[in-house]
Simulated assay, not measured.
Amino acid sequence: MKLQFKTLQSLTLPNFGQRPLLLNITQTLLLLDNHGRKINYLRLAVTDRCNLRCFYCMPEEGLNWLARTELMTYEEMLQCCALLVKMGIEKIRITGGEPFVRKDLMKLLRALSKLDGLKELTLTTNGILTAPHVAELKRIGVRSVNLSLDTLDANRFFAITRRDEFAAVMATMQQLLKHDMEVKINTVVMAGKNIQDIIPLVELTKELPVSVRFIEEMPFNGDGHNYSGMVWDYVRILDEIRQAFPQIQKIADAQYSTSYNYQIPGHQGGVGIIAAYSRTFCGTCNRIRITPQGTLKNCLYDNGVLNIKDLMRSGMQATGLEQTLRLAFNTRQKDGWQAESNRMQHPNVHESMATIGG
Results as ranks from 00 to 15, higher is better:
L83K: 07
L52D: 09
L3G: 08
P14G: 09
N330H: 15
L31W: 14
K107Y: 03
Q175Y: 05
K103Q: 12
P209R: 00
L83E: 06
M218A: 02
I290N: 14
A252G: 03
T130D: 09
L176C: 09
G96C: 12
D223P: 11
R213F: 01
L66D: 01
R110V: 06
E90Y: 10
E165S: 13
T331E: 14
F157V: 12
V188F: 08
K107P: 01
A111E: 00
W65Y: 11
M190I: 09
C81S: 15
I290Q: 13
V101P: 01
I288H: 06
Q345D: 15
Y260L: 10
G127Y: 12
L115T: 06
Q247K: 07
L306N: 11
A328Y: 04
T28A: 14
Q249I: 07
F214C: 08
G315N: 11
G222H: 08
K91Q: 09
G36V: 08
R279E: 03
A167T: 13
K297Y: 10
A276H: 03
T26C: 07
I356W: 00
E340H: 02
L105R: 12
V145I: 15
E136F: 10
Q263Y: 00
I237R: 02
M218D: 03
R19V: 06
S148W: 01
A244N: 15
C57V: 12
A167L: 02
T122Y: 05
F55T: 11
T95D: 03
N348Q: 15
G192L: 15
W65V: 12
D302A: 09
E90A: 12
E120H: 07
A252P: 00
R313L: 11
V188G: 07
